[in-house]
Amino acid sequence: MARTIVERELTAPVALCGPDGRLNRDAVGWTRTPMHDTSGIDGRRVWGRNKRWEYWAVTTPTHIVALTVSSIDYAAVHAILVHDRRDGTTIDRSAIAPLGSSATLPASLGDGPARARTKSIEIDVEELADGSGTTLRGSAAGVRFEIVAHRPAGHESLGVVVPWSDRRFQYTVKDVARPATGWLEIGSSKPGDSGKGGEGGEPSERIELPEGESWAVLDHGRGRWPYRMVWNWGAASGVVGGRTIGLQLGGKWTDGTGSTENAVVVDGRLHKLSEELDWDYDIHDWLAPWRIRGTHADLWFTPFWDRVSATELVVFGSHGHQCFGHYSGWVDAGSERIAVDGLLGWAEDVRNRW
């Protein structure tokens, strides 16, 4: 059943919060380039519900690399993930620190670096001086990397404000299909080491990311969330028929708010899908095909790996299935229907208590 909604495109800078810390209703809408000032989500005026994060995922023909730098007021949660598609081995490192002192996050996207500093994880996310991309550096036990997520001239990304209420709202930027280059080293023993040996002294393996076949995706978030939330998120990037295609799909958490985070990027141009999509998948068999569809999209997602995550603390709990695989089907980009065939990405089901 079609669930088309009317969304407003914003074309001028706007503050996410008013002077009282509540949602600025003029900020509700979507953008093609980041325009929201999110400095009001600072944990000073309103504390306990602020959620701030930078999540990057990079897909290559042989590896999946992901990093997280985040602060949820009462804790900082950081992570580095590397999955080897060749043999199925996974390096999954995480660190949870009280309060947010281990996290450095810019007030608004692009205002400065994001960093994580703990005994077990170091992460640096920095914009290149000429604005042509973002450098992603990370190190943890068994892994180091330095990757550039390039930003081609004219490349557009989806920014959306999701309003649950004047006190609970989220600003997200989903930036898909960023060409990636750089290197990944598996076997380095600790943050900041020389990479000469791994855990137990084994030599490290250095993998150069193949240009034209490696893609980075950003999930940037700033907001104040309800305590419990369930969401779907799907993304994919690659080349189909000689054109660069990026999929950005979401569900559940935006339903009923008047906002969606659905879009397709074709050769750097973003096309908004202003409808709530239907997500069909088997929670008893996460590797069975998923279907995501609506009036302007009909996509099948076939997973090959289910990354299961579970964290339970006193006030924080998270349970998720992030499945990596390939998309096929079609999606509308304005008046054109785009065929999707074998596009590498992921689809997830996450249930948070935070």
Rank of each mutant, 00 (worst) to 15 (best):
A2K: 06
A2V: 15
R3A: 06
I5G: 03
V6C: 06
T11Y: 10
P13F: 07
P19E: 09
P19M: 00
P19I: 12
G21E: 02
R25M: 12
A27Y: 02
T31K: 00
T33S: 10
H36C: 11
I41R: 00
I41C: 02
D42H: 00
R44D: 13
R45I: 02
N50E: 08
N50D: 15
K51W: 01
K51I: 14
A57N: 10
A57H: 08
T59C: 11
I64L: 14
A66G: 08
T68W: 07
V69N: 13
S71G: 09
I72C: 09
A75H: 12
A76N: 13
D87Y: 00
R93H: 04
S94I: 04
A95N: 05
A97C: 06
P98E: 09
P98S: 05
L99S: 06
L99D: 11
G100Y: 05
A103L: 03
T104N: 05
P106Y: 09
A107C: 01
G110S: 00
D111C: 05
G112W: 00
A114R: 02
R115I: 14
S120W: 01
E122W: 02
I123Y: 01
I123M: 09
V125S: 02
A129S: 09
A129K: 01
D130G: 03
S132D: 15
G133M: 09
T134D: 05
G138K: 05
A140I: 15
A140D: 14
V143R: 05
I147K: 01
E156C: 03
G159P: 10
V162E: 07
V162Q: 01
V176P: 12
R178A: 12
A180T: 10
T181G: 11
G182T: 03
W183K: 10
W183Y: 04
E185W: 00
I186F: 00
S188P: 07
G192F: 01
D193G: 04
K196M: 15
G198P: 11
E199N: 09
G200E: 13
G201Y: 04
P203W: 01
R206A: 13
R206D: 15
E208S: 14
L209G: 07
L209Q: 04
P210L: 12
E211S: 12
E213V: 08
S214A: 10
V217F: 14
R222H: 07
R224P: 06
A235C: 04
G241M: 05
G241L: 09
I245G: 01
I245T: 08
G256L: 12
A263E: 12
V266W: 00
D267M: 02
R269Y: 02
L270E: 14
H271P: 07
K272H: 15
L277E: 04
D278R: 06
L287A: 07
R291F: 07
T295E: 15
A297G: 11
L299K: 11
T302P: 02
T302M: 05
W305C: 15
D306C: 09
V308I: 10
T311W: 05
L313I: 14
H319D: 11
G320D: 06
G320N: 10
Q322H: 02
F324S: 08
S328Y: 00
G329V: 07
R337E: 02
R337A: 03
G342S: 05
D349T: 06
D349C: 10
V350D: 09
W354Q: 08
